Amino acid sequence: MIPEQHINFHVPQELNASVPPERRGVKRDHVKMMVLDRKTGKNTHDQFYNLDQHLNPGDLIVLNNSRTIPAVLSASLKRSFLTVDPKVEIRLAHRKGDNIWDVLIVSEKAKTGDILYFSDYLQAVIMPIDINKPLQTIVFPQNGHELLNSIYKLGEPVRYEYIHTPWNLDYYQTVYASYPGSIEMPSAGRAFTWELLFKLQKKGIRIAYLQLHTGLSYFLDDKWTMNPSENQEEYEIPESTMQSFLQTKAEGGRVIAVGTTVVRALETAVFNQNLKGWTNLYIHSDYKLKAADGIITGLHEPEASHLDMLSAFVNPRCLIRSYKDAILKNYLWHEFGDMNLII
């Protein structure tokens, strides 16, 4: 039985980071970092650039190198060559095949068989609509790199109400992102720079990568709430990463997952012995972690399912106490905010 979670607190509006650190005069890796001890529940405060001082030679850092795509598109809605709605917002949610996507259609006029006209070179047909679900399926005539190139030309990155400026897509990428597919940035890795990664390697800390393509987490209407176990995301773990993982475990090192996406991918792979596939794993306080010994993550909203996962690493009471301390010390929340190391 999955326990009810009661992780609640209030984040003042001014602590919602609406501006990337670089535009605040702060280097990516010089944001604040709260370090939370899994055993004692106590926290200390540092800068992310000093991450190497909290890790040991032989530890392994696993990063998600999925690249964020500009998933918000604008289309006209056409039916039998007539325009039904001249401007409809489409948010890509999950890639289901080379040319098949589940999407959020921000219009009540859409019907099965309608054509979404994005541009002269990109259209899509709406498959049978299910009014009881927030997401609908569309099919593009293009696929693969051709489709991705069109999306990159036309789309904008997903941004939520606390971000007031339409920042360029580059601000929503990690420096090592290389496999396009994430709808929302795997933001736990945003604070890493190549300089910091080299510093970690120089100390003898291993670095490895996997891919988990994040989906759309909010459907713009509070009536649509997604149970964490309904959140299906595609992942792939290279054989070399799994070998580094096994070697680290065998030698007594710690596996540090960068982000909840990496935790989900690793724990899923260890459980089902598959290095690629889809995961809907929901990790909570009663879940016994098998792969990850620590996590690097941002600061999450009250009652978010990400906090349920963090409760698998550390006692929820200690987590709440630390979050309240972070609020007092003016830590910033969300993808452009500060960091949390739980180890």
Rank of each mutant, 00 (worst) to 15 (best):
F118W: 05
L82P: 02
L77H: 02
R79P: 01
L148V: 06
L82K: 15
W101M: 05
I151R: 00
K96E: 14
L135Q: 01
V103R: 00
V88Q: 02
F118V: 12
S76G: 13
Y160D: 15
N143I: 07
P157F: 12
G113M: 10
S150L: 14
T112C: 05
P86V: 14
L116S: 01
Y160T: 12
S107D: 14
K111L: 15
L154I: 11
H145K: 10
H145G: 02
I90W: 00
A93N: 00
V106D: 02
V125T: 15
S119I: 12
K133F: 02
T137Y: 00
H164F: 10
L148H: 04
A124Y: 05
P157S: 10
Y162S: 12
Y121K: 15
P157A: 09
L154S: 06
D120R: 11
M127P: 00
G97W: 05
R159W: 09
P86C: 10
V88I: 12
K87F: 03
A93E: 01
L147A: 03
L77P: 04
V139K: 08
K96T: 12
V139A: 09
V88S: 00
V125C: 04
S76Y: 08
Q142F: 12
D114C: 05
I131Q: 07
V88G: 00
K87Y: 03
K109I: 10
V88M: 05
R159Q: 15
Y160P: 08
K96G: 07
D98V: 10
H94I: 06
K78T: 15
S150K: 09
G113S: 06
P141L: 06
L122H: 00
K78P: 00
R159C: 09
H145N: 11
G113N: 04
K111N: 13
E161C: 03
K153G: 03
V158E: 01
P128H: 02
W101I: 03
H94D: 07
V84M: 11
N149Y: 00
P134S: 08
F81R: 15
Q142K: 12
R95S: 08
N149M: 08
K153S: 13
E156D: 13
Q136R: 01
I129M: 10
V106A: 03
I90P: 05
L122K: 01
W101F: 14
L82M: 13
M127I: 07
A110T: 12
G97A: 07
V84Y: 07
I115Y: 04
L77M: 07
D85I: 03
D130Q: 08
Q136T: 08
L148E: 11
V158Y: 02
R95C: 03
I163D: 01
V139M: 11
N132I: 00
D102H: 05
A124L: 08
V139S: 09
Q142D: 13
I131K: 10
G155E: 09
I151G: 01
